[in-house]
Amino acid sequence: MPENNYAAVSLMDFSDPACAAKWHAINDGVMGGQSRGGPHVIDGQLHFTGCISLANNGGFASIRARQQHHDLSSADSVLLRVKGDGRSYQFRLYTSAHVGSSRIAYATTFKSIDNAWLELRLGFSQLKPTIRGRTLSGPAFNPAGVEEIGFLLADKSEGDFHLCIDWIKTI
Rank of each mutant, 00 (worst) to 15 (best):
M1K: 10
A7P: 00
A8Q: 04
A8N: 04
S10E: 10
F14K: 03
D16R: 12
P17Y: 13
A18S: 15
A20W: 10
K22R: 15
W23N: 07
W23Y: 11
A25S: 15
I26C: 06
V30M: 06
V30E: 02
M31P: 02
M31K: 05
G32S: 08
R36L: 14
G37T: 07
G38L: 11
P39W: 06
P39K: 09
H40E: 15
V41E: 02
I42L: 11
G44K: 07
Q45E: 10
Q45R: 15
H47V: 14
T49P: 04
I52A: 10
S53C: 12
L54W: 13
N56W: 02
N56E: 13
F60D: 04
A61N: 05
S62W: 08
I63F: 04
I63K: 08
R64L: 14
A65H: 02
R66D: 15
R66A: 11
Q67I: 00
Q67K: 12
H70I: 12
D71Q: 01
D71L: 01
L72F: 14
V78R: 00
L79E: 05
L80D: 03
V82P: 07
V82K: 10
G84M: 08
G84H: 03
D85L: 11
G86R: 12
R87P: 01
R87H: 04
R87S: 08
S88K: 14
Y89I: 11
S96Q: 12
H98G: 00
V99W: 06
V99N: 04
G100K: 07
G100A: 11
S101E: 06
A105K: 12
A105L: 06
A107Q: 15
F110D: 04
K111I: 00
I113L: 15
N115H: 14
N115T: 08
L118F: 03
L122E: 00
L127W: 02
T130L: 03
T130M: 14
R134K: 12
T135Q: 12
L136P: 03
G138Y: 09
N142T: 15
A144S: 15
G145S: 14
V146T: 10
I149K: 06
I149N: 05
K156D: 04
S157K: 15
E158H: 05
E158Q: 14
E158R: 08
G159T: 09
D160T: 12
F161A: 11
H162E: 14
L163C: 03
C164F: 00
I165A: 01
I165P: 00
I165R: 00
I165W: 00
D166I: 00
D166W: 01
K169R: 09
K169Y: 00
T170G: 07
